[in-house]
Structures are given as C-alpha cells and as structure tokens.
Simulated assay, not measured.
Amino acid sequence: MGVLENKARARLFYKYLSKVYDRINPFIWNEEMRGEALEWLDLSRDDRVLDVGSGTGFGTEGLLGHVDHVYALDQSEHQMEKAIRKFGLHGSVSFHRGDAERLPFADDSFDAIWSSGSIEYWPNPVDALEEFRRVVKPGGKVLVVGPDYPRSQVMQRLADAIMLFYDEAEADRMFREAGFEEFEHHIQQARPGTPRAITTVARVPEK
C-alpha cells in the first residue's frame, strides 16, 4: 500500500496541495479529457449525480455543463473550501464531507456517479466501488478516473510506494469484485510524455 493510501495522510497532503491544485491539475487531467469522459457518462439534464472526491471542483464544473445540480463529496475540508468559494453554499452544488468507502446516502439515491482523481487514495477500492453500486440506481452509470500503471520498472516502483496505480487487468478485478458486470476502460493522456489516466465506465446491474 502506498504512503498516500491512508486517509489521514491523504487529508494532510491535500491541505497543502489545495493551494496549488488548480494550477497543477491541467498538466495531468485537462478540460479536453474531462469533456471526453463526460460524453461517455452520457448524462441527462435532470439526472441526480454524485461527484466523489470532488476536490476543488474541476469535475463538478464539467458536470454542471450537463446536469442542473451536482452532489459533491470529499474528505478534505481544504479542497472543499476552495470549491465552495467557486460555487457558493446555496447554489447548484450540494457539499458533503464524507468517505468514498462509507457513503452517507441511501440505496439507489443517484442516477450516476463521477469520480476523478480519487481512487488512488482509497485504502480499499473494492469497498468504495461496492458503495457506488449501492447508491446508484440499477442501470445507472459509474465513471471512475485513476492513474494508469506506468510502463517503466523505475516508475512502477515509485508509483507503488506512493499510491494506487493500476492497469486494465486490475481494474477488471476491482469492478468485478464490487459486483459490476458491464464496464469498459479508456486510456486518456493530456499530451505525449505526461501521465496517463485510466477511465472506467461501468453500468450498475439490474436487481
């Protein structure tokens, strides 16, 4: 387990990263990649959508181009404070402090879940994906963006020491163990030589 796959350390990390996150993020996960992923999620304007690991609101901002209201959840108060300054407390975003592995919502509460740049910090990704399946209505979609496993052995050792990086085979395992039967993976990259993202779109099974 990587050093940041620990909730307390991840919160401390984001306390400081939140100050520069919006300047760093476009080099790894940019608007073009976000737009492509949103097309795969294929939302309707009145869909009830949860953004898990919403951070400073980059994914939330994209979602608001497709739906009228977004429910944003994050465990970092510092990241969330920046998002609240962007969107306000009483507008089109409802903010919730919480844990991806124990979502504070009832079964079948949402039409879709979006989660970008969060899975790499979850100590138990399958537990979180099971929670996603629980709170999304049957037939709804779950989209998860994480860091693709590096190709070089040097970068692999570095990645393993920091947080979760995973390939398509590992993504298959996690989603299957969480009870998903239908899913597809896409590799995205801001530009050649930059880190790659693995984006999985899964459909919640009918009960």
Rank of each mutant, 00 (worst) to 15 (best):
K7T: 03
L12H: 08
L12F: 12
F13P: 00
K15T: 09
Y16S: 10
L17R: 08
L17C: 05
S18N: 03
Y21F: 15
I24T: 07
N25S: 11
E31K: 07
E32G: 02
E32I: 07
E32T: 07
E32L: 13
R34K: 15
L38A: 06
E39P: 01
D42G: 10
D46T: 05
D47H: 07
R48E: 06
V52N: 07
G53T: 04
T56V: 06
T60G: 02
E61Q: 09
V70E: 07
A72R: 05
K82M: 06
A83D: 04
G88T: 12
S92C: 05
H96F: 14
G98F: 14
A100E: 09
R102C: 02
R102M: 02
L103V: 05
F105L: 03
D107R: 13
D108I: 00
D111Y: 12
A112P: 10
A112L: 10
G117F: 06
I119S: 01
W122C: 01
P125D: 14
P125W: 14
A128G: 15
F132Y: 15
V135Q: 08
V135C: 07
K137C: 08
G139R: 12
G140M: 13
K141H: 14
V142S: 12
G146S: 15
Q153G: 00
V154T: 02
Q156L: 01
Q156G: 00
A159W: 04
A159D: 01
D160N: 03
D167S: 13
A169P: 06
A169W: 05
A171W: 14
M174H: 15
F175N: 09
R176A: 15
E177W: 08
A178M: 13
E182Q: 05
H185S: 15
H185F: 12
Q188V: 10
R191N: 02
P195V: 06
V201Y: 07
R203E: 13
K207R: 13
